[in-house]
Design a protein around this nucleic acid. Structure first.
Lengths: 122, 122
DNA sequence: ATATCATATGAATACATGCTCATGTGTTGA
DNA sequence: TCAACACATGAGCATGTATTCATATGATAT
């Protein structure tokens, strides 16, 4: 099955043995999927706008993030299907809001640490 | 508890569009690039293994995450070029370690909120 | 009804991504 | 010196993704 060398026999290093806990493939997939939702600038701006604005309709979101309404709708579909946002229909407008309570903390953390550049790690 | 998401007064990259606060395109790109590094299961497992193991060489990482050494090396190249990891060469082995101090908090937060099945928001 | 608005969606396209395979580079040991 | 080892890297390929365009759906207004 695995043709990769198992490093236990021939290893002579004194560092920590490679028997650490690793994320399961499934757990890694769950987390990666979550991070992937935030890994596109347009989608990230949509999420951020919703965190700030509370509830916004598609056309407002489109003009805020400066992409077409169609592209916005496609992105919102992803966010919707992943459970990150929910919708409320009112007349012919559809209002989107954040449904995943965790994403705010995650995004806030990233903003705090990667945007406010307390010039640490470059 | 204060809201840390809103850029502070002294920050020079904040801007106020007429209605809502939106991330600038550049800021969104920076954050999205960061999230993208964590958006692949194999790469995420590599990062996690390094957070747990402290310092690991390529072959150990490869067997831990169960992908080929070549694939591991390719992923490590991305992490290296983005400044998320650093290397230390010892003999013919190259040891990788986490260089971005923020990624631990980010990943821990995600693990805490998305893996431990505390049904909050669905 | 019909036109228009707000949104959704499928197809097509251009581009990005992650892997394998082959090969290259530098190191160690026989 | 030569072979094996550890890792890096480029090419090629298959798949994924973000957009645009065209069209569809449903609501509102005339």
């Amino acid at each position: 099955m695995s043709d990769m060398a198992i490093p236990s026999e021939q290893s002579d290093h004194r560092h920590r043995p490679p028997s650490e806990e690793v994320l399961s493939i499934d757990d890694a997939q769950v987390l990666a999927d979550r991070f992937k939702l935030l890994s596109d600038p347009s989608r990230l701006r949509i999420v951020y706008a919703l965190l700030e604005g509370g509830e916004l309709c598609v056309s407002n979101l489109a003009s805020l993030v400066e992409v077409s309404e169609s592209a916005t709708s496609h992105q919102l579909r992803q966010l919707r299907m992943s459970g990150l946002v929910r919708t409320r229909k009112q007349g012919r407008e559809v209002f989107y809001r954040i449904a995943d309570s965790h994403v705010r903390l995650l995004l806030d953390t990233a903003v705090e640490h990667y945007l406010h550049e307390h010039d640490g790690h470059r």
